[in-house]
Design a protein around this nucleic acid. Structure first.
Length: 648
RNA sequence: GCUGAUGUAGCUCAGAGGCAGAGCAACGCACUCGUAAUGCGUAGGUCGGAGGUUCGACUCCUCUCAUCAGCACCA
């Protein structure tokens, strides 16, 4: 009797036959010996599997090697297991309880629970042990177990976290355990065929992490690491991490004298130094001008408000803990405002509104204060005192779409002027399971989320969706960016709100003479001045476009003999509206150039005898170097036009 | 807020139970200079703060503050 065979379709479309029970390794080997050597697993009908996975029926099969994303993921996952095994060997099987150990972007982590607090030195010892286990080249194999067996096995091991995971898995899920030498772990897999395949890895840090991401649970120790198939790739990655640190706005902000913090002033309270204040002023003028040209009306409202105001809005219920505590004066209770919406509601309410008046766009560069938890504070990204480029658009329901699209166009225009290219739109919905956090009105939520989604789809914006990221009063369209250290943050936001108009009893008189309720769109374009500054510094590594640079040009004499001419050039530039400095210090030219370069000033204008005699300056442009002598007037015209056109 | 690490001159960092160190920056003097660091000199510190152990603490212990990483939070 002939053995049953299975038909395997390869990625190039070729169909081959194999005996039933053939493994991925067999398939790879039948294609080429090189592929067999490089294969670490396979993809069967789109599902990633182990190398020794046996084919039971006809299937589309792809060989997974370390050169593709699936292979790299397996590699890192197996490295996480390798680390767990090493830790158990060093600290004892019973002493170490394992949580979860997933693959993440650029690496992996494993959450563990143990008495001993791991230090950076311990990580080195763990790495050593990992290397040893890799040398041992233990084979990694999968076995499937029943739920009862799994509970028994991890019960005997005394691992409460794995037991909890098993209990929470759906009934119909196939449980599997991966073995490598004496070590085994509950895992869906797949994994590399053996520990010897793991060549280059590094444990990066250890930090606390709540079990299952819940602050009410115990805090475990999370060890982060990364792994690459080749040592050279690992080294390159580590260099990139170092480079990223140099782009950190906290470092650049200090080096470029943009901002500082002082214990004496308080945690998370930024002090804008002259250079940073200049950048901020440029941004503020820019955005106010743009907004006014688009029909926004700027207002000023106080940085404090009565608790009553926030009770009406609902902020008091939701965010009381995150506000600076109330001050009781006379018969009033006041708080530093954490948000400006309620104040702007009162701007709307200050007058009778007709349907003809709408939309009304109320804007403010609004200073606000939030008691961010100490651990959340990060440079200018998260602060306790901030100025938001805030606005509230009050419109009729039939105007939502148009107003929303205007906001999106404004975001795009501003991003173009600021040279922001790398961002993603996120539609932020409520988490329907979280009834605590979101205003309970299913109908309102469903309507506003649907409406927002339709608007965004109609605009043809690429977007992704995120549950549980909405504001308590409504869904948001957020613009997500990444910091130098690859953390995702929201820069711009536009939010659809049916709730606050309700709570504040906002009205307008419609065409029909009856009272109607307007809708509010909350929006921030350049975010807070603080966050945008942080972002720009990182985005440009401090090399701000000329129109945003605090100092746009510096005039440098070859020696003090030309100070008079320097003064003359400086005044010409000043008169043309260029932010200019001159370096009259008695130093060598090379020295002054170096300093100006480190300050990242876009234009250095160098003058000596030749320039003085010909009414010219030698231009040294940031990033381009010495451009030679040019007539002073021409150079000024060029700089002015670059500023005017916001060249980035 | 939680877990851990760190805190020494303006900056970057070394050191260590027995007199506190370097480079850069600052200041002074000389050099008057042509595209990323001229030379010499001077000054600069309650070693984050408080308490304790000790004959003696920057060093060891406790507490506290700040910073950093991560978690949680982010209207």
């Amino acid at each position: 009797m002939q053995a049953v065979s299975v038909k395997v379709t390869l990625p190039d479309g070729a169909v081959r036959e194999y005996a039933q029970g053939s493994t991925i390794e067999d398939v790879a080997g039948s294609i080429s010996s090189g592929l067999k050597k490089n294969a670490v697993g396979g993809k069967v009908n789109g599902k990633v599997v182990d190398l020794n996975y046996a084919l039971t029926g006809d299937a589309a099969v792809e060989i997974v090697t370390l050169d593709n994303a699936d292979g790299l993921e397996m590699y890192r996952h197996s490295t996480a297991h390798l680390m767990a095994q090493a830790i158990k060997r060093i600290y004892g099987d019973q002493a170490v309880k394992l949580g979860i150990g997933p693959v993440i972007e650029d690496g992996f982590y494993y959450d563990i629970d143990m008495e001993h607090a791991l230090t950076p030195e311990d990580l080195l010892a763990i790495e050593k042990e990992m290397e040893k286990i890799s040398q041992e080249n233990l084979s990694i194999s999968r076995r499937e177990v029943s739920r009862e067996d799994a509970l028994r096995i991890f019960g005997e091991l005394g691992d409460p976290y794995k037991l909890e995971l098993i209990r929470d898995l759906p009934e119909d899920v196939v449980l599997s355990i991966y073995d490598q030498g004496e070590f085994y772990d509950l895992c869906r897999g797949p994994h590399l065929p053996s520990t010897g395949r793991i060549k280059a890895f590094k444990l990066l840090s250890v930090a606390g992490a709540y079990w299952r991401g819940n602050a009410k649970n115990k805090m475990l120790q999370r060890i982060y690491g990364t792994a690459f198939p080749k040592k050279a790739q690992l080294d390159e990655h580590l260099v990139l991490l170092e480079e990223a640190k140099k782009r950190d706005h906290r470092k650049l902000g200090k080096d470029l004298k943009m901002f500082t913090f002082a214990k004496e002033v308080g945690q998370g309270l930024p002090i804008w130094l002259p250079k940073g204040a200049k950048l901020r002023r440029v941004m503020e003028r820019y955005i106010v001008d743009v907004e006014e040209s688009l029909g926004y009306q700027h207002v000023y409202t106080p940085v404090m408000g009565s608790v009553e105001l926030y009770k009406i809005s609902g902020h008091w219920d939701h965010y009381q803990e995150d506000m600076f505590p109330k001050m009781e004066m006379d018969n009033e209770e006041l708080v530093l405002r954490p948000m400006n919406c309620p104040h702007h509601m009162m701007v709307y309410k200050s007058d009778m509104r007709s349907y003809r008046d709408l939309p009304i766009r109320i804007a403010e560069l609004a200073n606000q204060f939030r008691y961010e938890m100490s651990g959340a504070l990060t440079g200018l990204h998260r602060v306790r005192a901030m100025t938001l480029n805030d606005a509230h658009i009050f419109c009729r329901p039939d105007q939502i779409k148009e107003e929303f699209s205007r906001v999106v166009r404004l975001i795009q225009r501003v991003y173009e002027d600021f040279g922001i290219k790398d961002y993603r739109f996120r539609l932020s919905y409520r988490d329907p399971k979280d009834t605590e956090k979101y205003y309970p009105n299913d109908e309102m939520w469903e309507m506003s989320q649907k409406m927002l989604r339709e608007v965004v789809e109609e605009l043809g914006l690429p977007f992704f969706e995120a549950e549980g990221e909405a504001a308590f009063y409504g869904p948001k369209l957020d613009v997500q960016i990444r910091t130098a250290l690859k953390k995702e943050e929201t820069l711009s936001t536009a939010q659809l709100d049916f709730l606050l108009p309700e709570r504040f009893g906002l009205e307008y008189v419609g065409e029909d003479g009856n009272k109607h309720r307007p809708v509010v769109i909350h929006r921030g374009i350049i975010s807070t001045m603080e966050r945008m500054t942080a972002f720009l510094l990182e985005n440009f590594t401090g090399n701000l476009p000329t129109w945003l640079s605090p100092v746009q040009a510096i005039v440098i004499p070859v020696s003090n003999a030309f100070d008079g001419y320097v003064k003359q050039v400086e005044e010409q530039l000043l008169a043309a509206g260029v932010r200019v400095e001159a370096d009259y210090r008695n130093e060598k030219l090379g020295y002054k150039i170096r300093e100006a370069q480190l300050e990242k000033i876009p234009y250095m204008l160098i003058v000596g005898e030749n320039e003085m005699n010909s009414g010219s300056v030698s231009v040294r442009k940031r990033g381009e170097g010495d451009l030679g002598a040019q007539s002073t007037q021409e150079v000024i015209d060029k700089i002015v036009s670059e500023i005017r056109n916001k060249v980035v």
